[in-house]
Amino acid sequence: MQLLRKIAFPFSLLYAIVVYLRNLCYDTGLFNSKTFDTPTVCIGNLSTGGSGKTPMIEWVLKHLNQNKSIAVLSRGYKRQSQGFLFVNPDMSPEAAGDEPLQIATKFPNTVVAVDPNRQSGIKILEEQVIPDLILLDDAYQHRKVKATFYVLLTAYSQLYTRDWYLPTGNLRDHKNQAKRANVIIVTKCPAQLSEEEQNEVIRSLAPQPEQQVLFCTLAYKEKVIGVNETLSLESLKTREVILVTAIANPEPLLQYLRSKGIRYDHRKFPDHHYFTEKEKSEFNKAPVILTTEKDFTRMGGKVDNAYYLGVEHRFLNDGKEKFIGQLNSL
């Protein structure tokens, strides 16, 4: 795979030029971006995934002013339905998309919708829901909408400044588009990241004077949740565990499980993979299937011995207060 990526370097140069020119057309006004009356917060990244966008959406929903009426608009990546759709917990992941369904299930009082056309989706939400705030999930590259506030995520182990463009690297957008962010959040940091190490990251990112750089780490839960029961993570030490992941970057999870003394046989699938009936049948033969919440959602309750380990972002220093203060001011 690494050899193929190196061979593809000329194509990555062409890709970089194309995304640069596309953004230039928007930056100079040659292409139009639409603004809306409802405040919109775009949460996204410059890479192909693995920065923790869905957990950040959930973090915002959990911590933002509860007096605000918030709607979430997502593309619904790889869903089999078309056009605009309100998502409810009774839908299948194939119809709603795995991440929107996960959010709708965890936050039943929040309106969650999917639409590949963000302009159209926002317009429908404004007409039918009238929310105080709209969270745009993974819309950083969707330049047809100009958001009120931009949150750019970048993983500590794969900063966008140290990455390269597809297909040689993982960047799907030009590095210079970090300039549009109001806040840059470095995710998946070590829990004990020193001030010196934080400053080194900030120097690498070279933010604009008005941009804030915040840091957060992943906080895993102590229990795993299954279809019919909840178990302590500790109890898995003595059991035969098959770990199933279909996410962009499972390495933080693997490291955490190893640190807890959990032994596992890892079955890795492509990001957003929808498990076939045959695969689900095979999973049901295993003593314990351990997976992520997103993957658990895609199993659709058809793997009786499956459990997911929940995770959330935890801000370092006073990042939580700074971030919430910015969002509540919109």
Rank of each mutant, 00 (worst) to 15 (best):
F84I: 07
W59P: 00
F269C: 01
P167I: 10
N109V: 05
E229W: 01
G83Y: 13
K237C: 06
E293K: 00
F11I: 15
K78V: 07
E279A: 08
G44R: 04
E195Y: 06
D138R: 04
D304G: 09
S259P: 08
Y264A: 00
K34I: 11
R258M: 12
N45Y: 11
L290D: 00
L133R: 01
Q119S: 11
Q326N: 09
T276W: 13
E99H: 02
S47Y: 08
S33Q: 12
L4E: 04
V112C: 02
I289P: 03
S157H: 15
S329Q: 14
L133V: 05
N109P: 03
C216N: 15
A248M: 02
T238K: 15
I130T: 12
T35A: 08
F269M: 05
L257R: 01
L4Y: 10
H142V: 05
E222G: 07
C216H: 10
D265Y: 06
L214A: 04
T105S: 14
R203N: 10
Y220N: 01
Q198I: 05
R298K: 15
R298H: 12
S204R: 15
S81Y: 01
E94V: 12
K237G: 07
D163T: 14
A306E: 04
S12F: 13
N284F: 09
S81L: 04
W164I: 12
T245L: 04
S329K: 15
I43M: 04
A286L: 00
Y160N: 06
I134H: 00
M91A: 11
P190F: 10
H174Y: 15
G325I: 12
I103V: 01
T245K: 02
G226N: 08
Y160T: 05
I247L: 00
A246W: 02
R203S: 08
S33C: 08
K6L: 15
I124Q: 12
D90R: 14
T245I: 06
R298T: 10
E279G: 04
R258G: 06
Q141H: 07
V288Q: 00
D173S: 10
V18L: 14
Y140G: 07
P10H: 02
K221L: 05
D137P: 00
C216T: 14
T110K: 05
F107Q: 03
P55E: 00
F283S: 03
V183Q: 07
L21A: 12
Q198Y: 04
G121V: 13
K106N: 14
Y220Q: 00
Q80G: 06
S74M: 04
A219D: 09
V186A: 11
Y256C: 02
G301M: 11
A155G: 12
P108C: 10
G301V: 08
L61M: 06
V227R: 15
V288K: 03
N228P: 03
A104P: 01
N228E: 13
S33Y: 09
D98W: 02
E251V: 11
N32Q: 09
T168C: 11
L4D: 05
T245C: 09
S120D: 06
T297R: 07
V145G: 04
M299S: 11
S81Q: 03
L327Y: 11
T35H: 05
P100A: 07
N328Y: 07
Q66V: 06
T54Y: 01
T161S: 15
S92W: 06
L152I: 03
I247Y: 01
L166H: 11
L233E: 03
F86L: 14
L30F: 13
Y77E: 06
